Simulated assay, not measured.
Amino acid sequence: MRFLIIIPAHNEENNLPFTLDSLQRQSCKDFKTVVVNDGSTDRTAEVISKYTNHDIRFETVNLQKSLHQPGSKVVHAFKKGLETQDVNTFDIICKFDSDVIFPENYLEKIDKVFRNNPDYGLVGGLLYVEKNGDWVYEGNSNKHHVRGPVKAYRKESFVQMNGIRETLGWDNIDAILLQNLGWKEVVLSELHVRLIKVKGADYTIKPAEYYGKYFYFLGLNRFLACVAAGKEAMKSKSGSFFFKIISSYENCRRQKLELKISENERKIINRQRWEMLKRKWLKM
């Protein structure tokens, strides 16, 4: 199966070489990589040229810096890269980040599971971060959800769900829509992808305003947004955190901010979240 890999990159001169080197070392060689330089002001463009000048599997797209909006910025860059390719000439569409290191058999394993399982629509490995000299599981999500930095879609599933959405929450929306269409999301726990994190950074800590916007753009109704906010408040052990999340959510509602999902897709997402709530919390 042939891979199309799109990598959005903004000011990643230090991390991007690790990602691209790990792709060059892949045991599966049948891929094309498009690195989208999203208005970088450092040496990212120079780094990319070292690969595009010597390896025909690497191409680049240069953009003016897009507005920094969580979620939508990276998807906007991804789509600009995708527009330069004929999707029909590929079998697997990948959205990878520019600060990850793949094991040498990553694409080979992805290829194999897609070929052997025609109902698999989204596949990826697990993210690991360096801690005290060791690489440990990041733990920022459950082990059954394919994270944004390592998404690999079967082309048919990607086309059927009309691609990924340019919005906060896109990397959960895709999984829900695919599930509704009958496709399976599968994490290959044996594939450990190294995520190069900034020292001292903790990506698991998000401000209340972020969660409020996230639940809004995910399309959650008020009840489910309150349930989700309560879950985050319990994690932070702060009652005020709950009210700050809801305030952010309601602020989005008052502004009637545009959702990047249809009304039918919104209903699908709420139905899926409600079913999950019944299974996990109400034991129904």
Rank of each mutant, 00 (worst) to 15 (best):
M1T: 07
I5G: 09
I6V: 12
A9Y: 10
A9L: 06
N11E: 06
N11I: 04
N14F: 14
N15S: 13
L16A: 00
P17H: 03
F18W: 01
L20F: 00
S22D: 08
Q26C: 03
S27N: 04
K32R: 07
T33Q: 07
T33G: 01
V36T: 12
G39T: 03
A45I: 11
E46F: 03
I48S: 08
Y51L: 05
Y51S: 04
H54Q: 11
R57G: 06
R57F: 10
R57E: 06
E59V: 10
E59Y: 10
K65L: 09
S66R: 15
H68S: 06
Q69M: 12
Q69Y: 09
V74H: 02
V74M: 06
H76L: 08
A77L: 05
A77Y: 01
G81D: 05
G81M: 07
L82V: 07
T84D: 02
N88V: 05
F90V: 07
K95R: 11
F96A: 04
S98C: 12
F102R: 11
E104Y: 03
N105D: 07
E108M: 07
I110R: 04
D111Q: 15
D111W: 03
D111K: 07
F114C: 13
N116E: 14
D119W: 11
Y120Q: 07
L127D: 11
L127Y: 01
E130R: 08
K131N: 15
G133H: 09
D134Q: 15
W135S: 02
S141F: 15
N142K: 10
H145A: 11
H145S: 13
H145Y: 14
V146T: 01
V146E: 01
R147I: 05
R147H: 05
V150I: 15
A152E: 08
R154Q: 10
S157W: 09
F158P: 00
V159F: 11
R165G: 05
R165E: 12
L168I: 13
L168P: 06
L168A: 15
W170Y: 14
D171A: 06
G182W: 01
G182H: 02
K184Y: 10
E185R: 15
V186W: 13
L188M: 11
S189Q: 09
H192E: 14
R194W: 03
I196F: 02
V198R: 01
G200V: 07
G200M: 05
G200F: 01
G212I: 05
Y214L: 12
Y216K: 03
F217Y: 13
F217G: 05
L218N: 15
R222E: 10
F223E: 15
F223I: 09
K231D: 09
A233S: 15
M234A: 12
M234L: 06
K235A: 14
K235P: 06
S240A: 08
F243Y: 12
K244P: 00
K244V: 00
I246E: 00
N251Y: 04
C252K: 05
L257Y: 00
L257H: 00
E258P: 04
E258A: 06
L259I: 00
K260D: 02
I261L: 08
E265N: 04
K267E: 04
I268R: 07
N270Q: 03
N270T: 03
N270L: 04
K280G: 12
K280I: 10
K280Y: 06
K280S: 15
W281A: 14
W281G: 09
